[in-house]
Design a protein around this nucleic acid. Sequence first.
DNA 1: ACAGTATTCCATAGTCATATGGATTACGAG
DNA 2: CTCGTAATCCATATGACTATGGAATACTGT
Lengths: 226, 226
Amino acid sequence: MGDPRAKAALYEQFSRIGKAMASPKRLEILDLLGQGERYVEDLAHEAQLGLTSCSAHLQVLHHARLVTTRKHGTRVYYSLASDDVARLFAGVRDAAAHLLADVEPARRAYLGEDVELISRDELLRRAGSGEITVLDVRPTAEYAAGHIPGALSIPLAQLRQRLAELPPEAEIVAYCRGAYCVFAHDAVRLLRANGYTARRLADGMPEWRLAGLPTATAEPVSLQRA
Amino acid sequence: MGDPRAKAALYEQFSRIGKAMASPKRLEILDLLGQGERYVEDLAHEAQLGLTSCSAHLQVLHHARLVTTRKHGTRVYYSLASDDVARLFAGVRDAAAHLLADVEPARRAYLGEDVELISRDELLRRAGSGEITVLDVRPTAEYAAGHIPGALSIPLAQLRQRLAELPPEAEIVAYCRGAYCVFAHDAVRLLRANGYTARRLADGMPEWRLAGLPTATAEPVSLQRA
DNA sequence: ACAGTATTCCATAGTCATATGGATTACGAG
DNA sequence: CTCGTAATCCATATGACTATGGAATACTGT
């Protein structure tokens, strides 16, 4: 049946991927990197980690080759090694959602009440007619790194002050990092409270990209940096 | 940006799946369960684990809901919770193969020289014509749990004594548990050394099933149990 | 009810993972 | 060349994971 030590060595290699995804903080980092490259301090802040812990987690991900690095000036920018990694993260996240009963209460506790959804397919069907305004509520840097073509960029933090930029009659579809990101949830609730017709795209930018749909980069349609 | 504790709790849930796949032995168990249900002692023997360690690993997998149990008599049979789990394992394994340079040498060390391949597509194209004999070289229990319709069952351990059962002129396609299983490799090498034309199906039973292709169960075409 | 077997539970020892603070390295600006 | 900043390296304390042997539990067959 073959050399047991060689077999163990092979599964040992496979497990490097599993080990890299065995920490909640590392999964959070992978999720963030799915939006585009980021440098260490930024990731540490966003994932609520100490700088050294964050760096250590990034080393683990790098050792498992899930991320690549690029040096620019004094900063080190990390990105996902490939779309396979984004798919892998999505697989783990969705498997958890299907298999673990505790995910649903945790999701509700974090995201709050459900808001009305629209699927990617429906959005694509109705997008051409001009009756829908697509709104990207992520930070501008993530919008710049890749967004749905034609989407407006208003980060959630600025949305309340910039409601006037939205066409009052159109139906608004807000999207963000994904189904487990608060931004679009909060945005839809804010918009509806202000009389808009608004729904949330069922998933976020990474899924859009993985579905092979076109994306646009750079030059925000709107102004930036609050 | 939402409650950090709630966010941590959510990613904590996701990481339960990652933690379950963070051990080489547990991945080996998942791979085995992809062939069909198995009881604890059998798994312990096949994965070269002590009984209690194996049971403990199975508890971890069960706690992450990757496996389900069925009691029959004094035995507990474990199976994968769903095809999603088989897909998830395949994703981790294939990600490792793509991302980690150390996988290829480990594969060669375990499986030996490469043997000639045939893809699922080519097999399907040429299967109807009768020029190909499909040979399942896994243990009979795994054949019984699900095999390619029309495949002959000759477990690798019996192949040398039962060469006469194979049509001498036909081209033989051997398959087993998957691309990282020794059985089909050894079978093809044995067949070629005995003058047969033989190739290995590029992947195994789980991939066949996940591709939505038909499977047959029970009643081996050939006799059994050496 | 009793003996036998499969599995799980429990306690333990050794190893590995995580977070953190201080020192070190690498780079760019002046 | 020197200073300031970003990131990594190093040492350490704490907590988690793994394998294993012995005890306890659950079920079958007689």
